[in-house]
Design a protein around this nucleic acid. Structure first.
Lengths: 237, 237
DNA sequence: AAAGAACCAATCATCCTACCTTTAGAAAGG
DNA sequence: CCTTTCTAAAGGTAGGATGATTGGTTCTTT
């Protein structure tokens, strides 16, 4: 007859409202949110209610409070925060293997579903990779490489895959370990082969191109300390 | 010189302590936790502090409070709760594609790292699958099939992969959609081929066996409403 | 002028008491 | 046996008081 009315606790509503402010980007990452007193007034709730909501966001990982200073935004989504937390307990090898799995599937799906615009974008980022290697700019190479990967994953048009990929590996690119392997020549990486496969919608070739790429990435880590835990904390304390 | 003293808010400590009770299984899923007054006394904190901790666990998805009734355990880990929440917004096809990706990688890694015990376990579950099909017991088949998959994933010895797999797809097995496809004959599924490949440590054969398996799974969903969202809520309200 | 110490205002952390709302289950009535 | 009513228990909300921490400012000393 009637839809059951969504019953939610006040603090739950406040939580949802604040979360939306964060995910919408209205409260930028790193910025300080208004003080408790102001939020109390603006939301029209008591201190306890507001604090319970904020505490929830802190535990989820979206906020961080510093007594005597304020409350700050630390992440933009629950998924990001939790996966980041989980990733920090993983080893490089573990992460690479999972990335391999997702890269592979994404490449195969991209063959089926990529748009021409996405293909063009891949070409562009691949060119950027080439250029950054030429001028030996490792940081810029990492960025371009990451964007290329992201474009391929986006081309899978599988939002679950996209979300997992982005949130699992975004911070990884900055990690210490990933600076070890910078290819000497662009051709080594196999980007051109991969993009060609996606252009021709040849899933088999795409997958084997990814296999080649990942193998290259893995090798330097296996020799050294690939089992060491990742360190994703931004600061070097 | 000195280790930095871990500074944590009281409610944070309470949160961690309660979380451990849940992850350790001391508080079983579905059970009601002690009432606020008792916890206050037992933990020696005020009501606000306790409530902030509990609210955090509620938002993360480990607890659920029902006014006038009590507070209940709903999940056993943060990862489980968040991924479950995310999965409920996914379509069957999306989930299957990600499962494919992980299955594939797991099979390949299992070829490298499986123990003899794990191989034995796979044989056993595969036999169970066979038997349950023979007597047309779909529910038991699903269970055995899930355990077989889990064993293969475990054999990858990649804890990140294991955690993701378990928490992404555990509840999926119960889903409506997965009851559609129950193979007529065990051989169709290709379990024997997959296990044989893992026994011989032949990664290439293992991967193609998984490909075959997933293709079989996908086909009935593509024809119908594979783009429909999953419904993972236990109750049918 | 530079370095250090003392101070101060802002902000979150904790605790307390009080009262409201909802729920499950017992009790009463049919 | 079923339905209605009542009630105790549990969580929900509110507001105030006090403590602790932080960052910046001001003052003092060299």
């Amino acid at each position: 007859m009637f839809e059951k009315v969504e019953k939610q606790t006040l603090s739950g509503q406040v939580y949802a409202r604040l979360e939306r402010l964060i995910t919408n980007g209205e409260w930028e990452i790193g910025s300080r949110i208004p003080r408790e007193a102001d939020l109390m007034e603006k939301l029209g709730v008591s201190r306890n209610t507001l604090r319970e909501a904020i505490r929830g966001l802190v535990q989820v990982g979206l906020l961080e409070t510093r007594q005597g200073d304020g409350t700050f935004v630390t992440a933009s989504s629950e998924l990001s925060a939790i996966l980041h937390k989980r990733m920090s307990r993983s080893s490089v090898i573990e992460a690479l293997e999972v990335q391999h799995a997702l890269d592979r599937e994404a490449a195969a799906l991209a063959c089926l579903r990529r748009t021409d615009e996405q293909l063009l974008q891949m070409d562009q980022y691949s060119k950027q990779c080439f250029e950054t290697i030429e001028r030996n700019d490792h940081e810029a190479y990492r960025d371009a490489d990451w964007l290329l990967h992201r474009t391929i994953v986006d081309a899978s048009h599988n939002q679950l895959l996209i979300d997992l990929y982005e949130n699992l590996f975004e911070k990884l690119q900055i990690s210490f370990f990933f600076n070890r392997f910078i290819p000497e020549r662009h051709s080594e990486v196999g980007h051109p082969a991969l993009i060609a496969a996606i252009r021709n919608r040849d899933a088999r070739a795409a997958v084997s191109a990814v296999d080649h790429y990942i193998a290259l990435f893995k090798s330097p880590h296996e020799e050294t300390d690939g089992s060491m835990l990742l360190n994703l904390s931004g600061n070097g304390e």
